[in-house]
Design a protein around this nucleic acid. Structure first.
Lengths: 233, 233
DNA sequence: GGATATTAGTGTCGCGAGGACACTATATGA
DNA sequence: TCATATAGTGTCCTCGCGACACTAATATCC
């Protein structure tokens, strides 16, 4: 139980460190995650989360952002660390631990493009996942749960929308995240009561129907309550 | 931005993986954390959190439990992963990322004992920390915040108490965690309303004063709401 | 241009959770 | 037996939030 000789990971076998990113978006009324197709073994040609090994000269956060950029061509405004998965056998070939991050993006902002070790990339409905490499399905489920949980108290939904937004758009995002309809009046009362939205004075006509007033998120009116460190780039 | 040659951590410089454990207890009306004195550089003789490198054949959870046992002689019922700290320069000598865990223990249950790479061990008031090695002070602050947050919705306090407990003891734990007094009647109404406490029928006389009824925590009545995976050993 | 369809926007009631508040009950020890 | 110390108990009020239906403004279709 007690050992006198210190364990030195630089002269003994030890885990490698990877990061994986769960990138959520909303499109066509669905909550979707970004998947890439692996070019290399293990799990060659399988769908997986974008991610890769951490380099010696970058922080974990930087590694997550870099891998997302390299493999999927996506730059995000922020990333939040989710959990670190460290089961011994989660990679069949080697001992690898993975620090998972999650991020949200407005789907219209840009379209992903495969690169790096990825031969393909796609958005996938979070409730209809294909077979995924490693323990990535479990990681996505965990991320979805955290997203729902976090959406209860933090204005995460604003990351999924353009800067100027309508209350109906915002409500729609919450409905997709939670998977159920919300009452319009209660939703507006609650959101406006938070005093984190500022009317721009403008309005936007979305096809037919009455034009909706536009609002902007006041980041300075809000402080995160914990449960994760949000990193701004 | 895109590179064709995959980065192989087994043939390139890469981070080592450590675990650190923040073990909380309550004693003399204070919230305290367990610290060890380091035997080896870097930060030789400095106070630090118990922890060490992860071995190739053990999960992160197992590594955390092992290090706590080796360095401080403490076995815990459960550990919860807190966060993974991965700044490039958090260890001045080498690139090391640290997966932090936190745990709670009844102070009376056992007394810690230095071992492994630790030459000394002590409980320290969480609000009066000495200089700590690495970024461990930041880690402790983060853990304390998470503990307060988690105590809002999860019955963490039961881990800090013996199996049979009184409502006054339980209230005291919450008061210490939150650093403020609570109303006795409101506290009891709320806790009993959760229906996670079962009266044992016994009572305990604590010196002077009326004897208090004893209760036992009904684990099966409660399910964790997320925000962390709790591991039972 | 008028009818129709479509989306935006608004107020009230009731319930339950939880904070503020003071006294009685039962034991020990002087 | 009296003083002290801790355990235990009930009411009122406020606030958050869920349930619930109609009017307002615009586009489209004839």
């Amino acid at each position: 139980m007690t050992e006198r000789v210190p364990y030195d990971p630089f002269s003994n076998p030890h885990p490698a460190v990877a990061v994986d990113v769960i990138l959520f978006t909303i499109a066509d009324g669905e909550l979707r995650v970004l998947l890439i197709r692996r070019e290399l073994p293990p799990f060659e040609d399988a769908w997986a989360l974008p991610g890769g090994f951490v380099r010696a000269d970058e922080s974990l956060d930087e590694a997550a952002a870099r891998e997302l950029d390299e493999e999927a061509g996506v730059s995000v405004r922020w990333l939040e660390q989710l959990y670190t998965f460290g089961a011994v056998d989660r990679d069949p070939a080697r001992r690898v631990i993975s620090v998972a991050y999650f991020a949200l993006i407005d789907a219209l902002e840009l379209s992903p493009r495969a690169g790096g070790d990825a031969t393909d990339v796609r958005w996938c409905n979070v409730r209809r996942l294909p077979k995924l490499a490693f323990d990535h399905k479990q990681i996505v489920r965990y991320a979805h749960q955290r997203l729902r949980y976090k959406a209860e108290y933090a204005p995460v939904a604003f990351q999924l929308l353009p800067k100027d937004l309508t209350l109906s758009e915002l409500q729609h995002v919450y409905e997709v995240i939670h998977g159920k309809a919300l009452d319009k009046r209660n939703f507006r009362r609650k959101v406006l009561g938070l005093e984190i939205l500022e009317p721009t004075g403008e309005s936007r006509s979305e096809g037919r129907g009455r034009p909706a007033a536009l609002y902007r998120f006041r980041r300075d009116r809000f402080r995160d309550l914990g449960g994760g460190v949000v990193l701004e780039f």
